[in-house]
Design a protein around this nucleic acid. Structure first.
Length: 484
RNA sequence: GGUCCCAUCGUCUAGCGGCCUAGGACAUCGCCCUCUCACGGCGAAGAUCAGGGGUUCGAAUCCCCUUGGGACUACCA
């Protein structure tokens, strides 16, 4: 299946509402979305909530919100609706029972009344003898048939033939499994809910899914799914198993302990959706060139299944951060201004957009993610905080022996007094001053910077003074001089 | 234990038999630019292509074995 796949492409992302979407999950969502877009197909969000015990309140909304915030909202789903709904499995129970019935009649499914205790015992025995556990089909024997009204599950009977079952995985290639290694898995639980395996296959068929792009961990259960497709006499979709996303330390699957964060947390820190998309895409996919950052339309255009990596990728936040800063630097100033909403320091609330725009221009190159904006620009909106003693400490240092710190500031104040505070005139006034005072430019400028910003590092001095303006700049110089 | 998957710089990766004494990027270090911090430019260090056997005139690339890591092995997904 290349870009010229003749069938209409319909893909689904099928998370369980058991918590927020972590980066591994969102990567799967992205790949599905990209494949749909690449083919002009449809992407679907299906919620797999068949385990009532693990259901987390609000998780569904969080998942939908995250996808929307990332700009990869599905075409069909719980919020969007669609012709193949409902898109939440707990609302599809009738459908599963309806489809279980003929399989039960044909013998593909059978009733099992075995207690969890018996199953556990069997498992322990198998463990002890070093044999792989497989259900012993105790309830398949006529003598063990009990009443249909007693609680029971429906198991799928692994057929005796063929010897093996396999498929051409779009990323792994040919994969085959022996049927004798497979266990008669449960299809319908005692509570009437289907298991993942059963619901998944029924829904993928009913929703006309053409490609299943899902995490690696599903690979071992794919033969069970294939057997189910076969029992139904349905045409299975193309399977593509995605490599795992690992935590930055160790080789374990990414988990919250490894610093895995929800998509929302990254967004809150000021990571751009386009940076997240480009970075996530690079986790297990590349186009074969040396390009490092991709615009989303480039991703859509170039994304193919055969370029998906087979080996797992570790999540490297440093690289994400670099990519985010790179994209911030590339962004037109007005767009960045728009995006920076909500990240300004509280003290900026009374400042005009025009003023903020000038400030933003000065820090754009220094921003790695938007939440840094606040501490980077605080002094533009509020008087510098000298309480840390930065003024005194600097004034005492050896650099300010001959022209003292105070002398530098007074001279600077005087030099700048009649300036129109344009960058050019500020530079013309201050640049020659160092030599006049018999000190280095850096020493003079540093004194001014500290007085003006309260910090040792800040944007360029002339730019900063120009943005702050005459009144504020002179006032801060005076205040600093007064304090010495 | 069983079944299966994976294996190139610390990390993301290029590589699909000769172009590789292995390329790019992040991170690290150095230099330059420079009023500081960034940005940018240049450069350094960093991978005996997990190890061992084959196949071949020729292997990071194909095959086998070993090792290491991971997933699955639930009336969870």
């Amino acid at each position: 299946m290349s870009s010229s796949t003749p069938i209409s492409v319909r893909v689904r992302f099928a998370p369980s509402p058991t918590g927020f979407l972590h980066v591994g999950g969102i990567r799967s969502a992205l790949f599905n979305w990209l494949w749909a877009r690449h083919n002009g197909g449809i992407s679907i969000l299906r919620i797999e909530d068949t385990d009532r015990a693990r259901y987390v309140e609000g998780a569904l909304d969080q998942i939908c919100d995250s996808l929307e915030a990332l700009g990869i909202a599905p075409d069909e789903g719980p919020r969007e609706g669609g012709e193949y709904g409902p898109y939440v499995q707990s609302e599809r129970l009738d459908l599963y029972h309806q489809h279980a019935k003929p399989l039960l009649e044909s013998g593909a499914l059978y009733r099992c009344w075995c207690s969890p205790e018996r199953l556990t015992k069997l498992r322990e025995e198998a463990q002890a003898t070093g044999v792989a556990f497989k259900y012993d089909r105790h309830c398949l024997i006529a003598a063990n048939q009990r009443s249909e009204t007693e609680p029971h599950v429906l198991r799928f009977r692994i057929p005796d033939a063929p010897e093996s079952i396999g498929w051409d995985d779009a990323v792994r290639g040919r994969l085959d499994f022996k049927l004798t290694d497979l266990d008669d898995f449960v299809a319908i639980k005692a509570d009437g809910f289907p298991t993942y395996h059963f619901a998944n296959v029924v829904d993928d068929h009913l929703m006309a899914i053409s490609h299943v792009l899902r995490a690696d961990e599903w690979l071992p259960s794919t033969p069970k799914h294939l057997l189910l497709w076969q029992a139904f006499d349905w045409q299975p979709p193309v399977y593509a198993h995605l490599p795992a996303v690992l935590g930055p330390t160790g080789n374990k699957k990414l988990s919250k302990r490894d610093g895995a964060q929800s998509v929302q947390e990254y967004l809150d820190e000021g990571y751009l959706p386009e940076a997240l998309r480009s970075f996530l895409a690079s986790l297990g996919w590349n186009d074969g060139t040396t390009q490092e950052v991709y615009a989303t339309d480039e991703l859509v255009e170039r994304f193919t299944l055969e370029r998906i990596q087979r080996s797992p990728a570790k999540f490297d936040k440093d690289r994400l951060t670099w990519m985010n800063g790179f994209l911030i630097r590339q962004m037109p100033l007005d767009k960045l201004l728009e995006r920076s909403r909500g990240f300004w320091p509280a003290s900026a609330s009374d400042s005009s957009m025009t003023y903020r725009r000038h400030v933003l221009r000065l820090v754009q190159d220094r921003l790695k993610f938007l939440s840094e904006l606040s501490e980077l620009t605080e002094f533009f909106f509020t008087e510098p905080d000298y309480r840390s003693g930065i003024l005194e400490t600097e004034a005492d240092s050896d650099r300010y022996r001959h022209p003292t710190f105070a002398v530098c500031l007074r001279a600077a104040r005087q030099a700048v007094e009649n300036s129109d505070f344009s960058e050019a005139s500020l530079e013309a006034a201050l640049r020659p001053l160092a030599e006049e005072l018999g000190t280095k430019t850096g020493v003079l400028f540093s004194a001014i910077r500290i007085a003006i910003t309260g910090q040792k590092s800040a944007p360029g001095l002339f730019e900063t003074l120009a943005v702050l303006g005459r009144e504020t700049s002179l006032r801060r110089l005076d205040n600093a001089i007064k304090q010495l």
